[in-house]
C-alpha cells in the first residue's frame, strides 16, 4: 500500500512538474553499499556494488519551495561464501525508496539534504547442500541522504551523494542489520516529451 501510495504521489508530482516546466528528469547512478551487519562483511566483504535509477520531482505544493521529492530504486547482486564450508551463496537486495530533500542552487551546484523511507526486498540463495534453497522477504527502512548535483548543461547533470540507511530483518530467528552507508555517483538527464 505504501509503495502504491508513493507511486501515485510521484506520478501526480511529475505531471505537475511537466505542466510547469515541460521537462522530465531521470537519473542513473551506481555506488558501493557498506552494510553494517558483521555477518555480511564476513561472507560478502566490506561493501557491495549496486546500480540504481531515480526520478526527482518538485512537489505540487508551491508554498514549500526548494523541497523536492525523489523516487528511486537500487539493485544489489553479490556473491559470497558460507562461513564454514565456503560454498557460494548469492544475495539480491532491491530498495524502493521515496525521499524528501531540501535543495538549493549555487551556480552550477545544487546541494541537497533529505530523508526518506525504503521498502526493501531481499533474497539469499544457497547451494544444494543446504537444508533450504533460499531465504527471501521484505522489510521497511529509513534513510537520510545528502549530496550535490553539478549541471553541465540544461540537460545534463552529475550527482554525488551519500546515504545512511536503517533497516532490519529477521528470518528463522536470524537477525540481520541491513542498514549501512552508501556512496554513489550518477548522471541526470532532463528532457521534454
Amino acid at each position: 500500500m505504501i509503495i502504491l501510495f508513493l507511486l501515485l504521489f510521484a506520478a501526480e508530482a511529475v505531471m505537475a512538474q511537466s505542466e510547469n516546466e515541460r521537462k522530465w528528469t531521470i537519473g542513473l547512478f551506481g555506488g558501493l553499499y557498506f552494510m553494517q551487519d558483521e555477518a555480511f562483511q564476513d561472507l560478502y566483504g566490506k561493501s557491495a556494488f549496486f546500480l540504481g535509477a531515480e526520478i526527482p520531482f518538485f512537489l505540487p505544493l508551491k508554498s514549500i519551495k526548494n523541497v523536492e521529492g525523489l523516487l528511486h530504486f537500487r539493485y544489489l547482486n553479490d556473491k559470497g561464501k558460507t562461513s564454514l564450508t565456503e560454498e557460494e551463496i548469492k544475495l539480491q537486495l532491491i530498495w524502493l525508496s521515496f525521499s524528501l530533500r531540501y535543495a538549493m542552487n549555487f551556480n552550477k551546484f545544487r546541494p541537497f539534504l533529505g530523508l526518506g523511507i525504503d521498502y526493501l526486498l531481499y533474497q539469499e540463495k544457497y547451494p544444494e547442500t543446504f537444508p533450504v534453497d533460499s531465504m527471501k522477504g521484505s522489510t521497511l527502512g529509513w534513510h537520510i541522504l545528502g549530496g550535490s548535483y553539478y549541471s553541465f548543461s540544461s540537460f545534463l547533470s552529475a550527482k554525488i551523494y551519500f546515504k545512511y540507511n536503517l533497516a532490519k530483518a529477521t528470518e528463522e530467528g536470524v537477525k540481520v542489520n541491513l542498514g549501512g552507508t552508501e556512496w554513489g555517483i550518477g548522471l541526470l538527464y532532463r528532457f521534454n516529451l
Binding site: D37, A39, F40, D42, L43, Y44, G80, T82, S83, L84, T85, I89, L91, Y122, E124, Y126, F130, P131, V132, M135, A169, E171, E172, G173, V174, V176
Partner: peptide
Amino acid sequence: REENKALFYRESV
C-alpha cells in the same frame, strides 16, 4: 558442533 553462516540462515553442522 559448529555454525555454517549465511546472511539469513545459520546451518548447524
